[in-house]
Simulated scan of single mutants.
Amino acid sequence: MPFDDFSPDGSEVTAPVPHWYDFVCPFCYIGQDRSRILAERGFTLLTIPLPIHMEIPLEGAAAGPREGPMYEFLEREARAAGLPLHWPARLPNSLYALTAAEWVRRHEPGAFPSLHAGLFDAHFVRGEDLGDQAVVEGHAVASGVDKQAMRAAMSTSGPARDVQRSGGFAERFGVTGTPAWLVGSRLVSGLRPRSEFEEFRAA
């Protein structure tokens, strides 16, 4: 489903839940657990990209030290969610990965869940470079994507426009960062406690 046709119901949660993410965001990596909770409660998620670190150069950048309360919080939450977390030494520019994933979501949706999880694992578990086209294509092929079709599409301007429109869609609902979920009329921003997601029930 393209998000263009999304129209929330003001009284009941009947529409898909838009969920914005970026592959380099550790809160989004753990946010996979929050999305799983919503899915278990009967929600359909509309998982769409929101690039948040476009200041990272195309060749990537060295990551600084991961110390202090925020990183301790993330490590605790990752353990609670059963997600391995190995801080990568470098931060990639994630735009190519986000654009490819959004193309797959729109055009080969059956492969999207595997690719989405696989690219998160590539960064936060394996330390692979998501700015490397070959890395992204490798995970796409492993998820069952037609590499030639994806490569041909990525040589056009269409997929990039879709990511830009996703940013406009986020702005429409007041989303300024990731992760974020729009559950009915309620915007849930950031990695909120699991208990908050467990309170939701689909109509």
Rank of each mutant, 00 (worst) to 15 (best):
V135N: 06
P16Q: 01
L85Y: 00
G131M: 01
G31D: 07
T178Q: 06
M154A: 05
A97Y: 10
V183E: 03
V24P: 01
R79G: 11
S94D: 03
T176D: 15
R90D: 08
V141M: 13
V183A: 00
E128H: 04
S195C: 06
D22G: 02
E128W: 04
P113K: 01
M154H: 00
R66I: 02
E59C: 07
Y71M: 09
A153I: 00
A134M: 03
G31P: 04
T14V: 12
T178K: 05
A180L: 10
F6S: 08
R186M: 02
S11I: 09
H86F: 10
C25V: 00
H53E: 14
L98N: 07
Q164Y: 09
Y21A: 08
P18K: 02
C28M: 08
V175A: 15
A170Y: 10
A149H: 00
E40Q: 09
V24E: 01
K147F: 05
Q164E: 12
Y29A: 13
I52Y: 06
R186W: 06
A78M: 00
G174L: 10
D146M: 06
C28T: 13
S11N: 12
G64A: 11
S189W: 04
V135K: 07
F197D: 12
G127M: 12
A39G: 08
G82P: 06
P113G: 03
G42L: 00
R161T: 14
G127S: 10
H19Y: 10
P113F: 02
V145W: 10
T44C: 12
S185Y: 05
P69N: 14
A61Y: 05
A62N: 10
F197A: 09
D129Y: 01
G131V: 07
L191C: 07
L50C: 05
L83S: 00
E108D: 04
L74Y: 15
A149D: 03
P69F: 13
S114I: 05
E40G: 08
P92W: 02
D146C: 06
H139D: 12
Q148R: 02
L38T: 09
H139K: 08
G177K: 10
G110A: 00
K147W: 07
L95S: 15
A170E: 13
L46K: 07
A122Q: 04
A111Y: 03
G168T: 10
F43T: 15
G64F: 08
F23R: 04
G68C: 09
R161V: 13
P109W: 02
G10K: 10
Q164K: 08
H86I: 09
I56L: 07
L74N: 14
D22R: 02
L115T: 04
P8F: 05
V183W: 00
D5F: 12
T47L: 07
D4G: 12
P179T: 15
Q148K: 00
E72A: 14
L58K: 08
Q148I: 01
G158K: 12
A39V: 12
H116P: 01
A202D: 04
C28H: 11
N93S: 04
V188D: 02
R186N: 02
T47A: 14
F27D: 15
D132S: 05
L45H: 01
